[in-house]
Design a protein around this nucleic acid. Structure first.
Length: 375
RNA sequence: GGGAAGAUACCGAAGCGGUCAAACGGGGCAGACUGUAAAUCUGUUGGCUCAGCCUUCGUAGGUUCGAAUCCUGCUCUUCCCA
């Protein structure tokens, strides 16, 4: 995998680049729609590609391992063939489930013992097994197995957790290096910077991940309950010391404003469930501000969802979408998700263009004012 | 024509003498959602000069210290018999 840095901005860490994989190029900064169980909820790959203009999507190791199961994905010939997405894929390792499945998981030096959220059955994930599973799923970018700590973790816990994550990371790379791809294209393993909200831990984490000969680096353990300002600070601490010539992926972030602020701080890649989940729940992100489409004020607003929107669904009216969402019609969730994803992809594309043109900072300032509007 | 059951807040439906402005569900209104245990969750839903007061349980009276709850008339609804 190659990463070419095109340009950067004076007075900012923002950069534009091109990441090349065997499934095609990714123009950074980029937003990656989340497709946990092998599907970006409610969206066909045709719309992802042609309408939303997604360049890379996510999958999740834990979810795909439980269902449909790794043998099914192997027999399909890998996730790309299974879900008919021929562009790059990134799989998360299950590290986030270590955090979100809190009560039904137990950590040890060896790994994490999970109880399936589907049927309660017990499963063991180790750094080694997670590498093997991700070889079988066959994503272009795969993630190290880490512990994602909650935003309010105390220093002692954060330190212990980071050390465990670091030992797991060594084992991930060892396993990764002694195995081969199962399909006819390369895979890259990204290590993850943890350290919670403690700058010294983050710095140590960055120093540690730089020891690996990785194609890119992730910043994890943020947007998990800590104040937004701390998230930005930790992002900066990380990007300040990460190699310039490799992509940086801020995991799980975030709101449109979070993304612009983080691009400014030197992040190249993002993913978040927000455009799809919040879309399903009636929240729309637009260039004019945020809309709760369920609110009565849209009942008779027959203007387009987003008159400047790039997706064909943006021409549906607010009143119609409100009706669909309120009536719990599947199409409502689909339209809202598609709109939000198209908006996210438009936003990062604009950011990239402004970086290249050299006026990213002034555009960002203006854009954030609009994004904070509540319509 | 005779008999039976019933009428409760936006809708459905509990309550059957005081702890009832009235359970619960739906609907309505609003909020949350950040590497997806989420097409989910939370709050609210008579009015006001809001730790208190006012008006509500078909309608008009009555019994009682006290009535959505008991009695009587009326109106309407459903069912059964002719």
């Amino acid at each position: 995998m190659e990463f070419e840095l095109i340009t950067s901005v004076e007075g900012s860490r923002a950069r534009a680049g091109v990441l090349s994989t065997d499934h095609g190029e990714i123009e950074t900064p980029i937003f990656m729609p989340v497709g946990t169980a092998g599907s970006v909820k409610g969206i066909h790959t045709r719309d992802l590609k042609e309408d939303i203009k997604a360049q890379i999507i996510l999958g999740n190791t834990y979810h795909l391992y439980l269902r449909p199961g790794i043998d099914v994905i192997e027999k399909a010939g890998g996730l790309h063939k299974f879900n008919r997405w021929d562009r790059p894929i990134l799989t998360d390792s299950g590290g986030y489930q270590v955090f979100s499945l809190g009560d039904i998981r137990k950590l040890s030096e060896e790994g994490a013992r999970f109880q399936s959220h589907i049927d309660g059955s017990y499963h063991m994930f180790t750094p080694e097994s997670v590498m093997d599973i991700q070889r079988s799923i066959g994503a272009d970018i795969i993630m190290a197995f880490d512990e994602c700590t909650p935003g309010d973790a105390d220093y002692q816990y954060a330190k212990k957790s980071l050390e465990l994550t670091q030992r797991w990371m060594e084992r991930c790379f060892t396993q990764f290096n002694k195995t081969q791809p199962k399909y006819d294209y390369k895979q890259s393993l990204f290590p993850i910077v943890q350290g919670n909200t403690y700058a010294d831990l983050r710095k140590a984490a960055v120093a540690h991940v730089k020891n690996f000969d990785a194609d890119g680096f992730a910043i994890g353990g943020l947007s998990v309950g800590e104040p937004e300002e701390e998230m930005y600070e930790m992002t900066e601490v990380a990007t300040a010391d990460l190699p310039e010539n490799k992509p940086r992926y801020l995991m799980g972030v975030g709101t449109p404003v979070n993304i612009l602020e983080s691009i400014d701080r030197g992040v190249d890649m993002f993913d978040c469930v927000m455009p799809t989940r919040n879309g399903r729940n009636g929240m729309l992100f637009t260039s004019e501000g945020t809309i709760n489409i369920r609110n009565k004020k849209w009942e008779n607003d027959h203007s387009p969802i987003d008159k400047n929107g790039t997706s064909f669904v943006d021409q549906y009216s607010k009143a119609y979408l409100r009706h669909l969402i309120i009536s719990n019609e599947m199409l409502g969730a689909q339209i809202a998700s598609q709109h939000n994803l198209a908006f996210y992809l438009w936003l990062v594309k604009m950011a990239r263009q402004k970086i290249i043109e050299g006026n990213f900072l002034s555009w960002k300032k203006e854009m954030i004012l609009k994004l904070k509007e509540r319509l």
